[in-house]
């Protein structure tokens, strides 16, 4: 039972992060745009969603508005970069910085939020998960199931979109902007669109994550950019990136692997206060994984060569 419980904890925190990873993947991998807006749009997504539900709104409506709010963050970053010619990294930082204040503004200054900066849902307020709850142990299954369905739908839509004429143009923009313009692609527009799409996804991830927690804190999003990046790299290293389909599935699975590692480490007695150190080590390992893989490949190749020589002799 303990194991099953752990599995659901991993799934309910990992699946929203799959979406986060996919969002970051669009900018970081496809568009070659190191977009730091991610933490901002994740927070805005969560804050918008929870605040609307708290004020009596429908959970689905709240999630949709969270997606739009996330996309809006991306739109601002995209405009800052393409129209005002602010460097990519900086325009992301600007939006991320501003979004912390915007989040506070959205949360409003009730007695609860004034001192703690936290909004928590009461038990009578339904999230997109609890709308379908039947009670008992099934609740966890239903929650994970809803998340899984959303992730699968997003995966399918992304796969379709990046195969369409415009999706292809976006991929070309990221890889070779000069050639894209020569092929008649408006690279400014495709950049803005892709950054908005990415952050809309991250907004959805934030909304899903915060609805699972049933609360949102201004500090909720800190560290999630790194989790997303690590997920991408872990997924790519373990599951490969041969075709586009393979690539996006790898990225979404990477987030789950990340939470598997973290949760098991804590379960086997890794001190909780050392969690951040674990994250850092994990990211270092993930980042140098391709290098290590290469090293071992060369090592084995050398051994094989040696073997051949001995046969010849």
């Amino acid at each position: 039972m303990d194991f099953v419980n752990l599995l659901f904890i991993i799934l309910t925190s990992g699946l929203p992060c799959s979406l986060l990873a996919l969002g970051i993947f669009i900018t970081y991998r496809l568009l070659d745009f190191a977009d730091l807006t991610a933490e901002g749009s994740f927070l805005i997504g969560g804050v918008v969603c929870i605040t609307i539900i708290k004020n009596g709104g429908n959970a689905f409506l709240a999630t949709v508005i969270a997606i739009l709010a996330g996309g809006m963050c991306g739109l601002i970053t995209g405009l800052l970069h393409t129209k005002l010619k602010i460097p990519k990294l900086l325009s992301g930082i600007i939006t991320m910085t501003a979004s912390a204040s915007i989040a506070m503004l959205i949360m409003g200054s009730t007695v609860e939020t004034m001192f703690t900066n936290v909004v928590t849902l009461s038990y009578t307020q339904d999230t997109i998960y609890s709308l379908f709850f039947v009670g008992g142990v099934w609740n966890q299954v239903i929650e994970a199931g809803i998340m899984l369905v959303i992730v699968l739908v997003v995966l399918f839509l992304l796969y379709f979109f990046f195969g369409t004429e415009y999706g292809m143009a976006i991929r070309a923009t990221g890889m070779n902007p000069q050639m894209s313009r020569a092929q008649g692609i408006n690279t400014d527009l495709s950049t803005i669109f892709a950054v908005s799409l990415s952050n809309a996804l991250i907004g959805l991830a934030g909304a899903m994550f915060c609805q699972d927690l049933r609360s949102v804190d201004v500090k909720t999003a800190s560290g999630f950019l790194v989790i997303g990046l690590a997920s991408i790299i872990i997924g790519e290293t373990i599951f490969g990136k041969k075709t586009f389909k393979n690539w996006i599935i790898s990225v979404s699975l990477g987030a789950i692997i990340y939470f598997v590692i973290v949760n098991f480490a804590i379960r086997v007695g890794f001190p909780t206060e050392m969690k951040n150190l674990l994250y850092a080590v994990l990211i270092v390992i993930a980042l140098c994984m391709p290098f290590i893989k290469d090293y071992f490949k060369k090592l084995f190749a050398k051994k094989k060569e040696g073997g051949l020589e001995s046969v010849n002799n």
Binding site: T164, E165, Y166, G167, M168, A169, I185
Partner: peptide, 15 residues
């Protein structure tokens, strides 16, 4: 990509 140069690129049509 070059086949669609100067044409509208649809978000719904397969590339």
């Amino acid at each position: 990509l070059s086949f669609r140069r100067g044409k509208h690129r649809s978000m719904l049509k397969w590339g």
